Amino acid sequence: MEKQRTPKNIFVQGPISPEKIGQSIANHSSKTDIGGHCIFLGQVRADEKEDGKVTSILYSAYEEMALQKAFEIREDIFAKYPLTCMHIYHSLGEVKVGEICLFVFTSSKHRKAAIDACEELVERIKKEVPVWGKEIVENGTDVWKENR
């Protein structure tokens, strides 16, 4: 009987720490059927805006809808690729320039599935999950970020 997957909370308050990323990688060392991992780390950039440089992004989400959409995307990706594991973490709240705001981690028996799944997962998260970022500029101006 196949295990029923349930929605997981993908949200982390503030930046995603290097320790969380490292621990996530270490947790997979005992899973000896994995031959490849693919990791994407989204980092806040110091983009130059009309009023100055971005210093941080304030992330917010319609959480219930976002978690349901992330769950649907996970299910689609698991159905399409022969993955062993998949993890998604997205920041809420303030994340400063240079800090990590998105961590996507896919694992499979062979590298190609992990790489392809990771790329599709990141693209779909950016396009479909209702998470918004307000860029905070050094002079105090706030600008809503557009995903590209």
Rank of each mutant, 00 (worst) to 15 (best):
Q23S: 13
K53Y: 09
W144K: 06
V137W: 03
V137F: 01
N9I: 00
G133E: 03
H28M: 11
Y62M: 08
V104H: 03
E128P: 15
W132A: 02
R74G: 04
H90L: 04
E119F: 09
K49T: 12
K96A: 14
E99W: 00
K8R: 15
T6E: 11
D33N: 13
K96E: 14
Y62H: 15
I10L: 10
F78M: 12
K49N: 04
A113R: 02
L83R: 08
A79K: 15
D51N: 14
G22H: 08
I136A: 09
P82M: 00
W132P: 07
Y62D: 12
G35L: 06
I16T: 08
S29E: 08
K109L: 07
V54P: 07
A66E: 09
K69I: 14
K31H: 13
I125H: 03
S56V: 00
E138A: 05
E2Y: 04
V131E: 02
M86S: 12
Y81V: 03
F105G: 02
Q68S: 08
V12N: 03
K20N: 05
K53D: 03
Q23R: 12
T106F: 00
S108K: 03
A79Q: 15
K134N: 14
Q13N: 14
A117P: 08
G98R: 08
F11D: 07
E48F: 10
V95S: 12
I100D: 14
E63H: 02
D33Y: 13
L67D: 08
K53P: 01
Y59F: 15
D116S: 13
K96I: 00
I34G: 04
E94V: 13
Y89R: 14
H87I: 05
A114W: 04
T106G: 05
E72C: 09
G22R: 12
G133T: 04
F40T: 02
G52C: 01
I73H: 06
G36H: 08
R74Q: 13
C85I: 01
G140Y: 06
K112A: 13
K80E: 15
H87A: 09
C38F: 01
C38E: 04
I77G: 08
I25R: 13
V122W: 02
E146H: 12
A66P: 10
E99I: 01
E50M: 04
P15F: 00
L121E: 03
T106A: 11
E146D: 13
K145H: 12
E75Y: 00
A26H: 05
I73D: 08
